[in-house]
């Protein structure tokens, strides 16, 4: 382990933390949070979820069945089971188990 290893780890930790703290550092001292920040705060959660779902599925590979079928089936299952049962834990468990079964039994 060289000093460089530790410095690099410290750098990754520092930049990551800075990104998470940045909005608080910029806006929490203000008496009133600016209007556009509040608006973003309201709309961003949904936009971020849309972004994260695409981000998670970015490695789908449409050139092989294994590359997209298990994830597609599991996602559809997650959506429909949530729409009918309204329990997020149930839907996450069900779709994850389905994904694992398809992956391990068929591919």
């Amino acid at each position: 382990m060289t000093t460089h290893t530790y410095l690099a780890i410290a750098m990754i930790a520092l930049v990551t933390a800075l990104l998470r703290f940045l909005p608080a550092l910029l806006f929490s001292r203000m008496e009133r949070t600016p209007r556009f920040v509040i608006r973003l705060g309201q709309d961003l959660p949904k936009a971020a979820l849309g972004m994260l779902v695409v981000y998670c599925l970015k490695d789908l590979d449409f050139t092989s069945l294994q590359g997209y079928l298990p994830a597609t089936v599991a996602c559809v299952l997650a959506v429909f089971s949530y729409a009918t049962k309204k329990s997020s834990l149930f839907s996450v468990l069900l779709s994850t188990i389905a994904y694992m079964l398809i992956m391990n039994l068929f591919f």
Partner: peptide
């Protein structure tokens, strides 16, 4: 992934 899909 399932967690994000369901939350969405």
């Amino acid at each position: 992934t399932a967690l994000f899909v369901v939350a969405l």
